[in-house]
Write a protein that binds this DNA or RNA. Sequence first.
DNA 1: GTCTATACTTGGATAGAC
DNA 2: GTCTATCCAAGTATAGAC
Lengths: 217, 217
Amino acid sequence: MAKSGSPSKVATAGTKRSANTRQLLVNAAIETLKDHGFAGASARAISERAGLNQGLVFYHFGSVANLLLAALDAVSGDRMVRFSAAVESVSSPTELMDVAAQIFREDIDTGHVTVLVEMIAGASSTPGLSAEVATRIGPWITFTKGAIDKTFGDSPFASLLPADDVAYTIVALFLGLEMLTHLDGDREHALTIFGRAQQLVTMLGAVSAFAPPKETS
Amino acid sequence: MAKSGSPSKVATAGTKRSANTRQLLVNAAIETLKDHGFAGASARAISERAGLNQGLVFYHFGSVANLLLAALDAVSGDRMVRFSAAVESVSSPTELMDVAAQIFREDIDTGHVTVLVEMIAGASSTPGLSAEVATRIGPWITFTKGAIDKTFGDSPFASLLPADDVAYTIVALFLGLEMLTHLDGDREHALTIFGRAQQLVTMLGAVSAFAPPKETS
DNA sequence: GTCTATACTTGGATAGAC
DNA sequence: GTCTATCCAAGTATAGAC
């Protein structure tokens, strides 16, 4: 109520407002990437979506590419927090498959992987962007490897397939499935695939129970 | 030598020249998509690469999007011819894995899958483009399903995993691996993954030889 | 059929008012 | 810190010369 009559002397209020604006731009960038892709994510399109002026993109981020990287960071951070917690409570391979399917479902619904895909695909159009994107995708392979190590570490699978190769494959699969799902609009197809994978892991787990865990020859 | 003095009455020469120009533009579009992505594939960038005038893009294709679709058609056609022949000579699952690895290697080297990836990712920026791209990606899932049916059709795997789900997954994996490979520049990582997959298929084939091919309970 | 020239639009980026 | 105004580069598309 007394807002207009009490100008604060410290910069706290201004900083807060600034942070809010940055957040609005980042959120709008995420939405624009999801709806119109990298090629459609212009400063004007994003700022219009945020209900803000176009010049603020350059004031706060210096360039469109930097804003898009900030959007990628935000999405990546959200996913990391959310999925670290999910994987935390998991111990068996079948549980991990459960969580993976759940993660994919959330990714499709929130459109978070779309942001990753668009940034990876769009990176080659802007000099220097590929390296920036690469350093932000790397952690996901590491994270996936950690989840595999945790749940498959003492299973017979571990000696068959190196966790880092599997992790690389899983991340690639997430990206690829997202692309196809986004393209054909059929999210069920990809979800049934996770169901199949889960069946397979369960079955192979049962089979491997009959096999010796490791040979020494 | 007598070129300027002998105008031909039929349009054959002109048509031939036109076809040649179209081909130059399509090739340049492919190269531009590979190097600078969908967002960098402008009429100017493509025509400059082709050593032709920018207006020819619109004369021959009507729009940049149409030229890019023609480029996608060309790549898709080349791949289909090449890989149909490769799969033709295959009968066993292990041979198919061999061919798959070979196909991926060629895809990486030629950059053909990059074109698919860029078109899929870029499609959402232009109204109506997604549907066009989708109809051009669909055949690849069908083709992959055919290759799986042919080689795994009478193996125990067939009853475990529906071929169309596997095909969808394989195509997604190709797209995803291409993205990661293109991003980090490390083509060996993806290639070792195909090696792992081949080991796995060989091993599971050996294991399944001890199991009954089908249960009736 | 191809090239030059040009109209028009969109987008990146900055300057200055508020 | 935000908004208005503006500049300039790049992109789509068309018209007309060759």
